[in-house]
Design a protein around this nucleic acid. Structure first.
Lengths: 133, 133
DNA sequence: GTACAACTTCAACTCAACTTGAAGTCAAGA
DNA sequence: TCTTGACTTCAAGTTGAGTTGAAGTTGTAC
């Protein structure tokens, strides 16, 4: 198996070397070994990093990501919890969609103050995070 | 206009009083005035907080949120930037959908190591954040 | 008019997720 | 062999987004 050193992993994954060391330190990834002092990573690390990047983009903490997908890609969590996570993501997707729509509304609606605009308020209600006004 | 004090705003918005003070300190919200020392907030603050909560859920920083929607709900940004934001959100929604699918796959697919599973890899490719493997 | 819960300020602390800097090591090419 | 650039460790610093604690103030209910 061809091994990559940290610089190459950094370049291909878009994750800074310092971050990769940090990820290793907290046990989120593992290096396949060392050549001298230098860490050598297996190719599967790149896949793991895709997963990590994705998870981060989804707003998971590194700890959570570590739980979602264990070292080798098997989750440490039971099925039901994974589905619960997926459901939570779906809720987040709805929030995001609401915000996207609100943004587009603000961009296009000529009203002076959007907070007053009933259409805008309705868009906000689409999010579930809305305060009890 | 009926004013609310910080405790009530906190309860209705789900945002801690300390956070509300912090938001005021950084200029993200403004209190309508004081009764003695106590801040009094107008009802529109609740709407603003919905927006802030939504923005946070979407991964925006407080600074960015401040830019997206100025104090009174008018954006500080030009139309084109707002649309660009909306587009970025849409991309994020796609990432999230990819992760959701990956999660459901992991929950349901009986393969021992998902990183090896071609179906799983394909799901990852659906995200654009993927490393060059 | 007094008790008390809910507020106030201000500084210091926390936490995650890194980054930066200093000082040292090492592999590979000229 | 020597140089160079990419790595190494370790400690300390940074940023954002608050929280916590101490010490003081005040509106309202009894």
């Amino acid at each position: 198996m061809k091994l990559l050193d940290i610089g190459e992993v950094a370049e291909r994954s878009g994750v800074a070397p310092s971050a990769l060391r940090y990820y290793e330190e907290i046990g989120l990834i593992t290096s396949a070994g060392r050549k001298g002092l230098r860490r050598q990573f297996g190719r599967e690390t790149l896949l793991q990093l895709s997963l990590i990047t994705l998870g981060k983009a989804a707003g998971f903490s590194l700890q959570e990501i570590a739980g979602l997908f264990g070292k080798e890609g098997q989750p440490d969590l039971p099925r039901s919890q994974l589905h619960a996570r997926a459901d939570a993501l779906e809720a987040q997707i709805r929030e995001l969609s609401a915000l996207r729509d609100a943004l587009r509304h603000v961009a296009d609606c000529p009203a002076p103050s959007h907070l007053e605009c009933p259409r805008f308020q309705k868009l906000l209600q689409a999010g579930t995070l809305t305060a009890k006004v």
